[in-house]
Amino acid sequence: MSAICNILNVALPPLSLIILPIIMLPYLFFKLLIRVKKMVYKENMARKVVLITGAASGIGEQLAYEYARRGARLSLVDIRKDNLVAVAEMAKLLGSPDVIIIGADVSDVQDSKRFVDETVDHFERLDHLVNNAGIGIPVLIEDCSDITKYTPVIDVNFWGAVHGTLHAIPHLKKSKGRIVVIASTCGWFPLPRSSFYNASKAALISFFETLRIELGWCIGITIVTPGFIKTELSLKAYENRPSLRIIPMGSAVECAKDIVKSACRGDMYVTNPSWVKVLFPFKVLYPELVDWVQQHIFGLFPNPSCKKGNIKTD
């Protein structure tokens, strides 16, 4: 087996340089056909049922309004149930024929089962599940003395999406529905002092890409990787970490419009603001440069104790 690996190590790199250009043209033609199909066919959301977690503010709130404009019936979920009342009223004014609100903690397995069950019991179907709920707690890893303080980030951002999804899958299969998962650009372009947040979003991307392979024949999955969007979470990060202010904020309204439009087209991915996409090739092709630039931008200069001359040995 090791001999085969050695052969592949030598043969595959040059072979791929031959294969990639050959398949490029037919692939681009295939992509063109898919694009034309998406321009012609867009899912009509009128009276379809959309469940949105983290709907009390930020991107989740704006998603509720955007789906409402398309005539969808809404199930709005948030741990801050009182804040959902105003969102629900506005959604009705914008065109949603029926809106229910549910107070729930997405990181709790039983709560996740409950909000899916309550949604299906009320509307008798589920068409789109939008996993939007998320939190962030900034920390520099070497200052992290109590790891348990940061477990809620993984519990809410990752497990919160997984719990709801697993309970919703049987209902989404029946409706040939769609899962929309709000990950983050930080899932593939991590920023310093956000290790646990970055990790939770990277896990989301990997989990739902895997799920799309397994269930893509019956459930659509759209993975969203927003940049910095003007929400409570981002504004708090700006306040606590002034170095982040060099990153321009996008609009939550425009982000929500892009997400719903892409979901209704059946897109696999959507990134907003779109300029954030240019970071991906830099990360892949020039990882050392990306690390060096971030270290200088965010003031992560070497600690004197890290220098070779200061290393102590017993």
Rank of each mutant, 00 (worst) to 15 (best):
L166A: 08
D117K: 14
L74Y: 11
D121Q: 15
V130M: 08
W292L: 11
G58C: 07
M90N: 10
C186V: 12
I205K: 07
L129H: 09
K42V: 12
S107G: 15
I297E: 12
D82I: 02
V156Q: 07
S75T: 07
T148C: 03
S75D: 02
K113Y: 12
I297K: 03
L28H: 08
R35D: 07
V36D: 00
D155F: 05
K307H: 11
F158Y: 15
A202G: 14
A237W: 03
G103T: 01
R47Y: 09
T53H: 09
A104E: 02
I247G: 03
L215R: 10
S262Y: 06
C144D: 11
V120S: 09
I22Q: 02
S274K: 15
M45N: 04
K277H: 08
N198E: 01
N198H: 05
I219A: 04
E209N: 14
R245Y: 10
V270E: 09
L235P: 01
S184Y: 09
L32K: 02
T225S: 15
G216E: 07
V106G: 09
G54M: 05
G103D: 01
I213E: 11
C5G: 00
Y150E: 04
K312I: 12
E89M: 02
D108Y: 01
G227Q: 11
N240D: 14
T231Q: 10
F29G: 06
L94A: 00
V139H: 09
P226L: 04
K312A: 08
S200N: 02
I229H: 09
H296I: 02
I59L: 14
F207P: 00
V116M: 08
G220W: 00
N132M: 08
E118W: 08
A91R: 00
A237I: 12
A72K: 10
V36G: 00
R73C: 15
Y41P: 01
A252M: 07
L233Q: 11
P273D: 13
R70C: 03
R178K: 05
T148G: 00
Y238L: 11
E61C: 11
R241H: 10
G220S: 12
D146V: 13
A55I: 10
L126A: 08
I311H: 12
I311A: 13
T222K: 01
D98S: 14
P13Q: 05
P138V: 06
E288M: 02
A168M: 02
T148I: 00
S2R: 10
E66K: 07
L76R: 06
L94R: 08
T231S: 14
E214H: 06
V276H: 03
G177S: 04
K176C: 03
C5T: 04
V87A: 04
I154Y: 08
K308M: 04
I18L: 15
V106P: 03
A256K: 15
V49W: 03
R114S: 14
I52C: 08
A86Q: 13
S184L: 05
V50E: 10
S195V: 13
S184H: 08
I23T: 14
I4V: 14
I137K: 15
I137R: 14
D98A: 10
I23Q: 13
Q294L: 15
I247Y: 10
P152Q: 01
L172P: 01
L63R: 10
F189W: 06
